[in-house]
Structures are given as C-alpha cells and as structure tokens.
Design a protein around this nucleic acid. Structure first.
Ligand SMILES: Nc1ccn([C@H]2C[C@H](O)[C@@H](COP(=O)(O)OP(=O)(O)OP(=O)(O)O)O2)c(=O)n1
Ligand SMILES: [Mg+2]
Length: 553
DNA sequence: GCGGATCAC
DNA sequence: TATGGTGATCCGC
C-alpha cells in the first residue's frame, strides 16, 4: 500500500526543494507570481529575468507579504493532503477506483460529438483598439492601464514579459520604453458591438463572454452551407477584420471547454480546429497541461500537481481514484470530464445576474470620516446601478481590504428588499461600524438575493427561463461545475464596466467557473460490502475521509 | 445564511 | 508612490 502515496510524495515538491540553495541564492524562484501561465505572445520571454524583476520590485511590500502568507497557507494545505493521501489503504484505493471507473463510464456515455463549437477571442483587445485610434502606437510596446495596474499589453510589450494584471511600475522596469494608454471602455464597447454583429451572422444565438470573446455553435452553418468548420473560422475572422480592423483568434472543437483551449493555440491572428472525433479529442487532451483548462487556476494547479502529481489532463484519469477520494462529486466529475475532453455542448442556458456590486481602492486610511465618505459614495453608485436595472435585494455585503491586503466580508440579510442609497448606506454603516477601528485600502458593497429571484427553483420573472440546471432529481452530473460561459443576448450589454484605473467602464461577462474549495470532507465508501470485489454495486454512503484542511487561520 | 477562497477577464 | 473591478461558485460552518 502506501507505495502509491509515497510515489506521489517523491514526484513533486521534493524535487523542487533539492538542488543547491534555491531558497537562499535565488529567492525569486520560490515566489510564485500570478504571471505563471504561458500567455500567448510570451513564449520567447526570459522568464527567469521577469520573475527576478517582479520579485525585486515586490519584495517587502505589503502586497508581497500578503502573497507570501497566502502561499504558505496553500503549501500547508498541500502537505496535509499528501499525508492523507499516503494514509489511504489499499482497500480505500480499491474502493475509490471502483467509484471512479463507474463515473468515468457514465461520463463517457454522455459524450456528444454532434455539435461544432467555435470560440473566438480578440487579440490584445484593449490594446488593439487603442492602436486603431492612434496608429503611431503600431509596432511599439504599449499597455493599457496605469502605473498601478495594467489591463492588457500588446504583443510587442509581451516580449518583455509585460502582461495583463501587472502593475504598471513593474512593467516599466521590464520595458522602459513601454507606452501607457489609459483605459477607455466606451471605445472597447463600441468595437465589441461591431464584432458581435459579425458573430451573429454565423450563430444568432451566440454566447457572449466578456467584451472580447464569444462562443458560437456553428453546427448549422457548416451543415447548411456544406463547408468545413475551418472555412467558417477563416471567414468569420476575415469578417471581423473587415468590420473593425482588429484581428482575432478562433478555436473549433466539439464542446465549449475545448474550443476555448483551441482558440489560444495559434493566437494571435490564428485558428485551430479539433475535429469531432473521439480519438482526436483524447489525443489532444492527453498531453494538455491542466492549467490550460478554464476553471483550473494557479492554486488548483499547485494542489493537483503537488499532491497527486497531476500535470496533464490525461493524468486526471490515471489518478481518478484519488480524485474521487478527495474531492466532492461535482468537482471529481469536472476533473474526470477534463481527462475525457468533455465539455458543454448545449446552447440555451441564460443566466441572470445574482449580485451587483461596487468597490473602490484608495490609499489606505483609518480616518473614519473619510471611510464614511467613501461608503456613502459607494452606496450612491451601487444604488444608481441597481436602478438602471430595476433591482432590489435583501442581502447586503460589505467588503474591506485592510492595509495589509487581507480581505474581509460582512453581510446582513434583511426582511425587506432595498435599493435606495439611503437604505444601503444605513445598513452598510452598521456593518462598517462593527469593524472599526481599522485601516483599509478598499471598500466594496454588494447586494444580492434580488426581489424576483427564485430561491430554490430557478425560473426567473425577468423573462427567459433557465432551462436546465440541477433540475429535478438527477443530482449533480456535469451540471454547474463546468466552467463555461453563459450570457446570451448581448443586447443591453454595453456599459457599466470597470476599468483598472479607476473609472467606470462596463463589462458584462459572466462565466461560471466551478472552482471554489472543492476539497471534499466526506466521501463515499461501501458501507457494507467490505471487499467482495464482485460486481456488487457499492452504495455510496458518506464516509468521513481525511478532511485535511480546516485550518483557517 | 455567512465568510473565506478561487477563478476569469 | 504604486498591485484593479465585477460577478460567480464552492466549501465548511
Ligand atoms: N486580468 C485581466 C485580463 C484581461 N482584462 C481585459 C483586457 C483585455 O484586453 C480583455 C480581454 O482579455 P484577454 O484575456 O482575452 O486578453 P487580450 O485580449 O488582451 O489578449 P489575448 O487574448 O490576445 O491574449 O480583458 C482585464 O481587464 N484584466
Ligand atoms: Mg483576447
């Protein structure tokens, strides 16, 4: 037994810790920035140098210290999980393997290769739009945003390691020539609308994600015109360029999850088609790093790699017994689906907003008069946004980010629905009062539980009804856990966005990443059978498995 | 229902 | 000098 666990232990973190003085000689190597994923256009970047510069610029800051704290927390989580992993008995593993195998068979049976999905994503969108407005920027490294934060960077700047979500002052260190352009959401919204008109030619019901991307079901177009998906993709991209002067990239695959992965492969200004063939899908997915999958971010990647040695989607299946042992069923389903290359193939699903919020960052202060003023402004902004959509809600959440970057939220659920700035402020003040004194750098307000929301069921009065979702019995299955875009009717989309710098902007994309903690505290065990490896259908009864974490602080 | 965390863009 | 804003989901209480 244990052998398996031990092997996992050897494989990951140990390897990283060996080698000489990693910690002492090259401290930046152990600082895991968020800029880890291989973004398009950054293949030739000297990652070691970028890492070092980012580290040098960040070292010692409040932000950095908080990142270190969070990282230590995750590291401990991984250590605990590995111990639990090593403690699994042969019997445990045999059981979980059965559970996993059965789930995999069920998931496989759900595979649908009948649809052709196309994901289109604009290249360096904000930056490209700014270059249209000011052609002298062409060919020069440029970023959209401020000295504090960048929204994105063009491909010339990416060669230096400059990218979205990077503070401008660090970017300038990486690329002294970098040109900064402030964000202008009106422009982005205008061009976004132009691209969507083109998308509509190929799928009137296309699913708009953020301003710069969309999913199109091109099954019908391909069939009606008897053309290959590749030609549709070419034509669509040419159309977008013609209408806007902007380039984009496209990915075609049997489902949205894979189409999204594909659109990134030949970016910028390229496309990639994954045929509707099971073997092609399995081959594609086998070597695919899990981090490429939407919904698997930095932390999930670290945990899966550090605890189970999972790097590729294929390994999700190889380690499926461990996955079923440690994660909730919906999360395990998602991970196994990824291993099988499965994803959403249906089109409907219209989502409704579930919350609305407003938040602002400012220089940290504990001045209560000032904080109250900020709160008042936020209440007014939020109320105004709610009026625009005729919303009122009964849960109010106050968000604070302390001077040390720790985030706190405090919520109240009221008897009555509120929407006026006065009502919001009245309750927000009480929430804030309870936290004083405190030095914060951000305050946010969020309202949820809208009037008209169906608490248990789903249908929404606003109009379109959500069709699927965890409807009737059929618990889980690949329902909500799949990262995947919803949102439809791009109409009414334009506006209310927020930019990085401070200004208002508009954005209205909403995805539904599965995400979350996904660590299952309970799991399934054959309650009676013991072993008797027969076909015996193990009844899934919750069993308290490790439950590793729980150490919150 | 609350609070923390993760993720995407 | 300086590390964003909006929305969603999930887990464990
Ligand atoms: N952390 C982020 C990431 C992106 N964006 C904005 C700016 C981008 O222009 C736009 C689209 O995001 P993408 O991830 O598609 O990035 P780009 O379109 O800029 O580049 P590319 O798609 O070519 O990689 O969303 C943002 O505000 N904050
Ligand atoms: Mg893009």
């Amino acid at each position: 037994m244990i052998v398996k666990g031990a092997r996992v232990l050897d494989g990951s973190a140990n390897a990283m810790m060996k080698g000489k003085g990693t910690e002492d000689d090259r401290p930046w190597q152990s600082y895991h920035t968020v800029y880890t994923t291989a973004k398009a256009g950054m293949e030739l970047v000297d990652k070691e140098k970028v890492q070092r510069v980012v580290y040098e610029m960040s070292k010692g800051s409040k932000y950095f210290q908080n990142e270190e704290r969070k990282e230590a927390f995750i590291k401990q989580k991984i250590d605990n999980l590995r111990i639990q992993c090593a403690n699994l008995t042969q019997e445990d593993l045999a059981h979980y393997q059965k559970v996993a195998d059965r789930r995999i068979v069920e998931l496989e049976a759900s595979r649908d290769l009948s649809r052709i999905w196309l994901h289109v994503d604009m290249d360096a969108f904000y930056a490209a739009v700014e270059t249209l407005s000011n052609p002298t920027l062409k060919g020069k490294p440029m970023a959209v945003g401020s000295m504090s934060m960048l929204s994105t960077a063009n491909y010339e700047a990416r060669k230096f390691g400059v990218r979205a979500a990077m503070p401008g002052f660090i970017a300038r260190k990486l690329c002294p020539e970098l040109i900064f352009v402030p964000t202008d959401f009106k422009k982005y919204t205008y061009y976004s609308d132009l691209t969507r008109k083109v998308f509509g030619r190929y799928d009137p019901n296309f699913i708009a994600g953020s301003l710069d991307e969309a999913y199109l079901d091109i099954t019908e177009v391909c069939r009606e015109r008897n053309v290959k998906s590749e030609e549709i993709a070419q034509e669509l991209r040419a159309g977008v360029y013609e209408e806007t002067g902007l380039t984009c990239s496209a990915g075609v695959a049997p489902n949205r999850l894979l189409a999204k992965v594909c659109s990134d492969i030949n970016k910028p200004n390229g496309q990639y088609v994954l045929p509707n063939d099971r073997m092609a899908v399995m081959t594609f997915v086998s070597s695919l790093p899990i981090r490429k999958i939407g919904g698997i971010g930095k932390v999930t990647e670290h945990i899966l790699k550090g605890v189970f040695g999972i790097n590729t989607c294929e390994q999700m299946l190889e380690k499926s017994s461990y996955i079923c042992a440690f994660f909730s069923q919906s999360t395990a389903d998602f991970f196994c689906s990824v291993g099988l290359g499965l994803g959403q193939t249906d089109s409907p699903q219209v989502r409704f907003r579930k919350s609305i919020s407003s938040e602002r960052t400012f220089s940290a202060t504990k001045d209560e008069v000032l904080l109250h003023k900020k709160l008042e402004e936020l209440a007014e902004m939020l109320s105004a946004d709610m009026q625009k959509e005729g919303l009122s809600g009964r849960t109010l959440t106050l968000k604070l980010k302390t001077a040390s970057f720790e985030v706190r939220t405090r919520a109240v659920t009221l008897q009555k629905y509120i929407s006026s700035s006065e009502d919001i402020l009245k309750h927000a003040k009480k929430l804030l009062q309870a936290e004083l004194p405190i030095s914060v750098r951000l305050i946010g307000l969020r309202v949820s539980q809208f009037n008209g929301d169906k608490c248990s069921a789903k249908s929404d009065p606003t109009q379109k009804t959500i069709t699927n979702f965890i409807t009737s019995g059929d618990v889980n299955r690949n329902c909500s856990s799949f990262p995947d875009v919803a949102d439809h009717d791009f109409v009414s989309n334009a506006e209310t966005d927020m930019s990085i710098d401070s200004r208002q902007t508009g954005q209205l994309d909403w995805r539904d990443p599965f995400d979350g903690n996904y660590l299952s505290d309970v799991d399934y065990q054959s309650c009676t059978v013991q072993k008797s490896d027969g076909v015996e259908e193990v009844s899934l009864s919750p069993l308290v498995l490790p439950y590793i974490t729980g150490f919150r602080n």
